[in-house]
């Protein structure tokens, strides 16, 4: 990526409507990164829940700041998926080089990792359960499982310091880097940034976020299904019925399906897209599965 890449017009530009959602996704990424920066002074990995509680209710507009961060991240996920669907529908994937396409496909697992690490940083009961689940899944990767698990989650059991560094550092950096390469600009355009900011602020104001035990929970804490983040419900449901390695095999499969779409033509492309569609249908099905189990 040279200096010229940053000043060139984005692929498609005004001619391609898929560019709109892509730019909006970059806008959301920027809002998320900026609001995340604003959260940094208030967060302590060693006292995750306590520091978030203080921010959430003890600081003027703290709850809003946190919600802005969360909803802009959700916005990033949703617009990235929508952007992909548009690209595939309009067959504009060849506007990217093969290498850039593969790297762009990697934005999906990266976005999920960034969001999941943010969820774990909450430090409440649901987040505390997500940590061993993530850890055990990473361990089932052949050959490098334990190393991968320690690299991502750190070597101190129960500590979220490593995850917080990955969340704010590794994942954000990679997301920004690949997005910048993909969009051929270092920062999002002003309109997308403003629009993403306004949408995030509207949601952050209107829909409050939860933290800690829900009001009215029973003190004896009867065993109930903990659902985890909404965007991973499909994975939660899949783990009830499928073996554990499916938790990384299935995303890998989707990445491969999408990655090969660029090079495929006609029937092969259709087959790949049908398979990806089946993957998404299974995800929706498993989401329903876990919601039914939790009822």
């Amino acid at each position: 990526m040279g200096g010229s890449a940053l000043t060139e017009a984005p692929p498609g530009g005004a001619r391609s409507p898929s560019g709109d959602l892509g730019r909006l996704a970059f806008g959301f990424l920027a809002v998320s990164a900026l609001s995340g920066l604003a959260l940094v002074p208030f967060f302590s990995p060693a006292h995750a829940l306590e520091s978030l509680e203080r921010l959430h209710d003890g600081m003027p507009w703290g709850f809003f700041l946190r919600a802005l961060h969360a909803y802009s991240s959700f916005g990033l996920l949703v617009t990235t998926v929508a952007h992909l669907v548009q690209v595939l529908a309009r067959r504009t994937e060849r506007q990217l080089s093969a290498g850039a396409w593969w790297r762009s496909v990697l934005l999906f697992p990266l976005t999920f990792l960034a969001l999941l690490s943010g969820f774990v940083l909450r430090g409440d009961a649901a987040a505390a359960e997500a940590l061993p689940v993530w850890s055990r899944i990473a361990e089932t990767v052949p050959f490098l499982g334990p190393e991968l698990q320690r690299l991502l989650l750190g070597v101190i059991p129960g500590d979220v310091g490593a995850i917080s560094l990955h969340h704010a550092g590794t994942f954000t950096f990679l997301l920004w880097l690949i997005t910048a390469e993909h969009g051929r600009r270092l920062v999002p355009d002003a309109r997308s940034l403003v629009l993403a900011g306004l949408v995030s602020a509207a949601l952050a104001g209107a829909v409050p976020l939860t933290l800690g035990p829900p009001p009215g929970a029973s003190p004896s804490g009867a065993a109930q299904i903990l659902l985890g983040p909404w965007y991973l419900l499909g994975l939660q449901g899949a783990l009830v019925d499928l073996p554990v390695p499916s938790a990384w095999l299935a995303p890998l499969l989707l990445v491969l399906l999408l990655g090969f779409v660029r090079g495929a033509d006609g029937r092969a492309r259709r087959l790949l897209l049908v398979l990806a569609g089946a993957w998404v249908a299974a995800w929706v099905g498993f989401t329903a599965r876990i919601l039914l189990l939790a009822r």
Partner: peptide, 23 residues
């Protein structure tokens, strides 16, 4: 720790233990 994915199992109302993550 649940032998599935390590969530902490809790005493179930029907006796024994239940895992809150995947049942």
């Amino acid at each position: 720790a649940c032998t599935h994915l390590g969530c902490r199992v809790r005493p179930a109302s029907s006796g024994g233990f239940a895992c809150p993550c995947h049942g």
